[in-house]
Amino acid sequence: MTALSTVDRPAGDDTIAARGPVRRLSSWLHRHRGARLAGLLSAPLLWLLVAYLGSLAVLFVSALWTVNSFTGDLVRQPTFANFRTILTEEVYRTVTLRSLGVAAAVTVIDVLIALPMAFFMAKVASPRSRRLLVIAILTPLWASYLVKAYAWRVMLANDGPVDWLFGGAGNGPGYGLLATVLVLSYLWLPYMILPIYAGLERLPDSLLEASADLGARGGRTVRSVVLPMIVPSVIAGSIFTFSLSLGDYITVQIVGGKTQLIGNLVYANIGAANNLPFSAALATIPVLIMVGYLVAVRRSGALEEL
């Protein structure tokens, strides 16, 4: 066998090489690892550079410009005026803290709901109902974000279903901060459940059995084995829920009553005020918060286990 194949190979190679330019190219690529890598990565890298880093750079640069308030022209002279306004005006601090609070609350609520749900799906449900549950969690993602938000607007309306749940007109939370947190938690829940579910699926059943075998009851097993093991999944989910909540401006417009979050300010300054530079300056706040969050997560070492 071995003798045969050593004789065979060079002959085969020759015929392949002779077969045409496509074959020749592929065999050339096979020999040149660098060229192969370049061919594979250049498109995504270009995308990353131009579309992502490029737009981020433009964001930061334009945050240093200002706008002539009468003509609406951009004044391209670098100044920190926008950032000074943001830092000195109390309202921006208030709104930033509120947005952070909302994002944190949404994340916590989603973690609390997602943990038992994902656990049930991954470890308790039969394979058949597990499939159904995954579908049930994914289906809302097929519906338009706006439709879902407006559906909640109707649910939360005065004398609406939520009010009745609380015992009559005006008893429910109505529109406002609470409604915003509620609806955002609903909207982003799948983004929390799915990574936790995936993490729990990867968690071998034998670890849970070993814990029980060593004398731990359910609660202890969850605390000492399950939670520490799925921390990376929870963090992955929280990056979704946190950043999506931090950037949202539509839900809060629909069910937030008079609440404003950073996203609203960014949008209002582009839309109503035509002040792109100020919007850009405002938009750096969530960017910085997310960068800080990711750095903190990295420090904790959770990313390495992803």
């Binding site: 009468f70 309202v91 209002a268 005020a273």
Partner: peptide, 13 residues
């Protein structure tokens, strides 16, 4: 109008 815009943000808090 720029001042109005910023004030509007402050008003909504």
């Amino acid at each position: 109008y720029a001042a109005w815009t910023q004030a509007w943000t402050t008003i909504k808090g």
